[in-house]
Amino acid sequence: MAEHNDKGTKAEQLAKDWLIANGYVFVTANYRYKHAEIDLIFERRGILVFVEVKFRSGTGFGYAEEFVDFRKRQLIIRAADNYIYEKDWKKDIRFDIVGVYQDKSGAIAFKHFEDAFY
């Protein structure tokens, strides 16, 4: 597996653990629909939360949230629509972005953007 894939998988696990520690209930990971994938799905206070995780080892090339462009948002929304249909979900939903940042010393920090798009 390529190094960037390893980092992405690690970032998703870190984000998952961090969100669980912050009161989110894990539902599933890496939900795929056609060409789209949702990294993590949680439930929190009756809301289904679709989470896109982005790893950054610095901000020289931009912040995590800047890498969820229009096309990526459309793919996530399409996959979420299918997931909602499959599960017959009737309550509220939202789309979040979690940036996982690792500094040069290896320390990890998180930046959570709730209701980041729709």
Rank of each mutant, 00 (worst) to 15 (best):
Gly58Trp: 04
Gly23Trp: 00
Glu43Ser: 07
Val100Ser: 01
Gln102His: 08
Lys104Ala: 11
Phe67Glu: 06
Thr59Ala: 03
Arg73Gly: 08
Tyr118Phe: 15
Lys7Phe: 11
Leu75Glu: 12
Tyr85Arg: 12
Glu114Ser: 14
Ala2Glu: 14
Asp115Trp: 02
Arg44His: 11
Ile38Gly: 00
Ile20Arg: 10
Ile108Phe: 11
Asp81Thr: 15
Ile41Thr: 05
Val51Gly: 06
Gly62Ile: 05
Tyr31Val: 04
Ile41Ser: 02
Lys54Phe: 03
Thr9Ile: 15
Ile41Phe: 01
Gly62Val: 06
Ala2Leu: 14
Ala80Thr: 08
Ile47Ser: 05
Thr9Val: 12
Asp115Met: 08
Leu75Pro: 10
Phe42Cys: 01
Arg56Thr: 11
Ala11Arg: 06
Trp89Gly: 10
Ile77Val: 15
Asn5Ala: 09
Ala80Glu: 03
Asp17Val: 03
Phe26Gln: 05
Tyr33Cys: 01
Ala29Asn: 11
Ile47Thr: 11
Val49Leu: 00
Asn22Ser: 07
Ala107Tyr: 10
Ala107Asn: 14
Asp81Gly: 15
Ile84Pro: 10
Asp96Arg: 09
Val98Arg: 00
Glu12Thr: 05
Arg94Pro: 05
Gly46Pro: 00
Tyr63Val: 13
Lys91Cys: 07
Asn30Ile: 00
Lys7Cys: 09
Arg94Gly: 04
His4Glu: 11
Ile38Ser: 00
Val68Asn: 10
Gln13Met: 08
Ala2His: 13
Gln13Ile: 04
Gly60Met: 06
Glu43Phe: 02
Arg78Trp: 09
Leu14Asn: 03
Asp6Ala: 15
Tyr118Ser: 13
Glu86Arg: 15
Lys72Tyr: 12
Tyr63Asn: 11
Phe50Asp: 00
Leu19Gly: 02
Tyr83Lys: 10
Gln13Asp: 03
Ala80Met: 07
Ala80Trp: 02
Gly46Met: 00
Leu75Gly: 13
His4Leu: 07
Phe50Met: 05
Arg32Ala: 02
Ala116Trp: 06
Tyr85Trp: 11
Tyr85Leu: 12
Gln13Gly: 04
Ile38Val: 04
Ile93Cys: 07
Asp88Trp: 12
Ser57Trp: 07
Tyr85Gly: 07
Arg94Asp: 03
Lys16Gln: 08
Tyr101Glu: 09
Asn22Val: 10
Ala116Met: 08
Asp115Leu: 06
Ala2Pro: 14
Glu114Lys: 15
Ala36Asp: 01
Leu40Ile: 03
Arg44Gly: 04
Val98Gln: 01
Val51Asp: 00
Thr28Cys: 05
Glu65Leu: 09
Val53Ala: 04
His112Cys: 08
Val68Glu: 08
Glu65Trp: 13
Leu75Thr: 09
Arg44Leu: 08
Ala2Ile: 14
Arg73Tyr: 07
Tyr24Gly: 02
Asn30Glu: 00
Lys34His: 13
Lys87Asp: 01
Lys54Gln: 01
Phe113Gly: 01
Asp81Leu: 15
His112Gln: 09
Asp92Tyr: 13
Asp103His: 06
Ile77Trp: 11
Lys16Ser: 09
Glu3Ile: 13
